[in-house]
Design a protein around this nucleic acid. Sequence first.
RNA 1: GCCCGGGUGGCGGAAUUGGUAGACGCGCACGACUCAAAAUCGUGUUGAGAAAUCAGUGGAGGUUCGAUUCCUCUCCUGGGCACCA
Length: 941
Amino acid sequence: MQFKNVEKKWRAVWEKEGIYTVKDSVPGKKNFYSMVMFPYPSGNLHIGHWYNFGPADVFARFKRMTGFNVFSPIGFDAFGLPAENAAIKNGIHPKTWTYKNIKTMTAQLEQMGTMYDWERRVVTADPEYYKWTQWMFLQLFHAGLAYRTKAKANWCPKDHTVLANEQVIDGKCDRCGTEVVQRNIDQWLFKITDYAERLLQDLEGLDWPEKTKTMQRNWIGKSEGVTINFPLVTSEAVAVVDTMKFNPSLVSLVLSGEKYISYRLEPKHIKVGDVCGLVHAGTKKQFALARITGVEKRTMGELSEQEVGHEKFANRKAMYTTYAKYYGKPVTNTTDVWVYTFECMPESVAVFTTRVDTIYGCTYVVVAPEHALIESFKQQIENYKAVATYVTKSRKKLERERIIEEKEKTGVRLQGVSAINPFTGESVPVFVADYVLGGYGTGAVMAVPAHDERDFIFAKQFSLPIKTSIVNAKKDVSAGCMMDDGTLVDSEAFTGMDSATARTQMTAWLEQQKMGAGKVNYKLRDWLISRQRYWGSPIPLVFCEHCKQRIASGDYKKGEFTQGELSNPGWVGVASEALPVLLPLVKEYLPTEDGKSPLAHSKSFMRATCSKCGGKGMRETDTMDTFVCSSWYYLRYPDPQNAKQFADKKKLAAWLPADMYVGGAEHSVLHLLYARFFTKALYDLKHVPFKEPFAALRHQGMILGPDGQKMSKSKGNVIDPDELVGTFGADAVRMYLCFMGPYDQGGAWQPGGMVGIARFLQRVESLYTTNAKDSVCKKPSTAVNPLKKVMHQTIKKVTEDIADFHFNTAISSLMILLNTMDEYREHLDGEVLEQFLLLLAPFAPYIAEELYREALGQKKSIHLALYPKYNPHFTVENEFDLVVQINGKVRDTIRVPKGITQERARELALTSKKVFAVAPGMQVRKVIFVPDRLINLVVEL
RNA sequence: GCCCGGGUGGCGGAAUUGGUAGACGCGCACGACUCAAAAUCGUGUUGAGAAAUCAGUGGAGGUUCGAUUCCUCUCCUGGGCACCA
């Protein structure tokens, strides 16, 4: 068979007959939305594309033949860096390059024999598409889900662009491998963190690979713990007020900001505004800072009852007696008294911990170099110079270097500043160290070296005390540090509790004392979408100085500005009617050294009118991260031509959420998380009626070169699918990819592996071309014969396997069926021949169609036919091979009717010659009988 | 370091509510066809052994009448995360 001619011939027929044009509803059929991750138009389809799209198309065709109205669209993720990189290399405009590639790849996708409905194609670089990308941006922006901030950003010195955290691999640019540096730039971010909990929770109901869900969970990184305020004290306080009785319950009152009064019979050299330390009457240690708000000289008699300070005396006489004893002189109504009023300064450092149960083992506190405390306590930190040097040094370090140093921890103590453990009332030293991350939690931690490995290493290095507060008999603590839960020791009232109980009770206590609160933290960061690049969708915002002033002065009508505009003063959204903000076809599209988007050099682009006040404005010149484009494309497929809305509501409801999504595991986190975020945001804004975009997800594995290495031009191990298609035909390539192994596993390319499938297809063809004509007239046999049996077993197996994405075993059962048909080639009837082709059709659409129409003379396309259903009547076996075991070892198999009794099986087993040969004169001690399977005689020899 | 996968013939891989290990394909060997080769078809193909049989699913133990499948430890390998308190 000349498969090239066959392929061309049927493609033309299919197009003419319109068999892949999808209707939004078909009476009596359920809709099924089957998607693949749309490709980036990089030039040519590579084998990985084939591996993604080929088997996914098999699945889609299978669903269609099993009675669904299947929608299987395709498009191109057409914006992005590679177009610019290619442009730099070849001097072609990114747009020219991209659309040329789309043309090539479209032809290749058609050749693959896919059932895409090309009328629904989307290309993210088309203005008709990115108009709605911009519209989507504005929805999120207006709802307050986008914000602009000067953020530390990853900057690639080679690509001259900011990279998302996710695009930095091991501190290097994921595209060019250049070392990434940090820069501070104003950028737009989406508040994906607002959705952290829902993104986590809703994973539950998804039919996704467990591994992918786990990766998303880890990425979101939820930790439940508590933030605790550690009051700060300094040695710089000018004087002390030491009459306070310190106990934990009083601390909270003091720190909650109530005014307190202290009486002195002798004056202190303190004046209003001075910062004093509050000292524990017993230990004489500072426990908080206070500012003096009043100093007054009076007599004891003038003190009113209400003013009788913080200490509760039974009566005035008792007070006088107490003071008399304390000062060693008589106290009467006329005794002079200096009255100091003060208020506690709420200076404290908040730490986040998931292990509040270990707090009695806290021996110091660490803040990140970025922590605001360092600046605000500049005056009080005695060794500020050394601290500042350390901060500068560690800020220069990239996060990667911080990690590489790993166990070698560095830090500097903040001399003159201490923190009070609210549970013990003891003060502990405060350090700055870059092993604490500024961007997570509160940027400060309570260090418990006895129960945290990192703190342990740091404590060892700095010779800090290590105090055990948890014991667990099962755990070996000889290494020094016990990180597991256990029982609390040396923890006052909490001693003896188990960790979990202690966490609950300690958190409750903190909340009651207003010293802390339960808190959930996520590792997930907001999504940085600004790109200082040309080839992307412009961000549809205009900066208007006039509106900024109006917002600042409150000079605007209610409802004139949206939430997003008010929270980003001066930035106004482009009106919907004015969308899209067209990407101008500039000649200078290359990135520039200044790091600004190339669009910033186009004056005509930047000039804009403010949509609110009509005044002069300046356009945002950054473009959007391409992940924005791909976060909603599945919503556009159902209605890609719609100029009035991103998609018709009815069409959306007809197809979404997608029933099946197939693509690479490399998108487990980013693309899939962003798409989920978009869907949820749009759901909240009532633009879509569902909360999750993809009900089911499957990944294809990665195909490696024949050498087991990742394919790359430099290694010369690239397998070119075009070459294979030229030699073996598209059907064979699709089918071999299905056959080579478990779909999600991938693996090294086996040169020569293709020939097995090629032979199989040749045998199919020759069977039909030599037999069909005689066989069609044969009437289907109703008798159960071996051929029928295999046929129906195969139908069952193939149907189940494709549904489970077990394409390899489905094909192997088709091979068994073909072998059986070969064996019974004299007895083939029209039904058998037709059924086999139907089973084959999803895998080999061209050959199946050719034989179906040409050899069997069918008029309509096989791809419109229904998949055969198996008849249990034909699959039932009435005999089986009884396995005879002696002491668990197989000794014989005997063909027996199903339903044989244990007694009969035993008789047969005992008469087996093979059994006798092994165990003559045996004594049967026990018989294990598994009905319709085996009999095992436990014997003594 | 932590969290997930995966280790089965010469190769890709089948088979697990515990019940005949190696389906299917590649490769290889032999045979048929051919002057010959290719293609095709047929037969065989886990290892050792002439055979009976024995061994055998990364390794070591364990549970069981019976373990690729369950448990414990361990090695290798692929992927993810990586000072997230």
